[in-house]
């Protein structure tokens, strides 16, 4: 946490340009800039600023937005729900779909359904995310009018009409890579002797797949899933901008554009800490879930 905080302090102070000069605006004079530097907490030596920055990080004190003067934590809290509305279902569907298709691919290993699937998956992986968004928004929201082009509803039950297409795009963009990884996990597992024994004993294929192979690859899949959890919390910047989803991705983008330093700081520090915590919890959980690791 100290390392993250230090790194971010260095980045904010030496890489991005002076935030006070930007915030001061085009008509500011030297006296206004000096006053603003003091009011924004950029006065004093670099060491004093660093101590203040680190203390705020450790105390989880994010202060108020420079742009709206509202509480940074409240603003982040407001964005979390919409972001998760898109990323969480998209994430779960992508894994469900990837598991199904990976089993299908392995079942037809190196036969035409497998080849076709690999072709589709590789194609989808090569399509840029922006192109996918532009295409789907134009075709499914505008031309076919199955979904609203843009918008959001705070009501958790009404928002799904707006969320559906972004979820679908998120799923489409994220499931192909997962298919390939899971496919290789299954292909490796299926070579093992217990599978051969089960087949020899006449156990149904679906029982082998879903009762035995699935159970054994799940810890690997779980590790992969857990590492992606922090990204779910920060939302999808592009999707949120194109569909008007008031999530954290949109918030981050606008805060950067508006030089809203406290919000950018909170989001980046929180994101880094959540990532570290998730990796740690993931490592612990994997031991609990996979008894084989304990015996090793």
């Amino acid at each position: 946490m100290l390392g993250t905080s230090t790194l971010l302090f260095v980045l904010f102070h030496f890489v991005g340009g002076d935030p006070v000069l930007t915030f001061a605006g085009k008509n500011a004079d030297a006296a206004t800039i000096a006053q603003l530097r003091q009011d924004l907490g950029f006065s004093g030596s670099l060491l004093q600023q660093y101590v203040r920055f680190t203390r705020e990080t450790f105390l989880w004190d994010w202060g108020t937005s420079w742009v709206s003067h509202g509480s940074v934590l409240k603003r982040i809290g407001e964005g979390l729900g919409p972001s998760l509305t898109i990323t969480l279902p998209g994430f779960l569907i992508a894994y469900f779909l990837a598991l199904l298709l990976a089993f299908l691919a392995v079942h037809y290993f190196e036969r035409w359904p497998d080849t076709l699937l690999q072709f589709i998956v590789s194609f989808l992986m090569s399509v840029s995310f922006v192109v996918l968004i532009l295409f789907c928004q134009k075709i499914f929201a505008y031309d076919l009018a199955w979904f609203p082009v843009y918008g959001w509803d705070h009501d958790i039950f009404k928002r799904w009409s707006y969320a559906a297409l972004p979820i679908a795009i998120f799923t489409l963009a994220t499931f192909p890579a997962k298919v390939l990884v899971i496919r290789s996990l299954i292909a490796e597992e299926i070579e093992k002797k217990y599978v051969l024994t089960a087949r020899a004993k006449g156990v149904f294929t679906h029982t082998i797949y879903f009762s035995h192979v699935l159970k054994n690859i799940l810890p690997g899949v779980f590790t992969m899933m857990w590492a992606q959890v922090p990204a779910l919390l920060t939302g999808s910047l592009l999707l949120e901008a194109f569909f008007g989803i008031p999530g954290l991705g949109n918030l981050l983008l606008n805060s950067i554009q508006a030089s809203d330093f406290p919000v950018v700081k909170a989001l980046t520090v929180m994101g880094s800490i959540i990532y570290i915590v998730c990796v740690f919890i993931g490592d612990v959980l994997i031991f609990i879930l996979d008894p084989r690791l304990e015996s090793k």
Binding site: P89, F147, S161, A163, A164, L165
Partner: peptide, 11 residues
């Protein structure tokens, strides 16, 4: 899977 969200509607 989109259908689970009953979403293909335009107000």
């Amino acid at each position: 899977l989109l259908i689970f969200f009953g979403a293909a509607c335009t107000p």
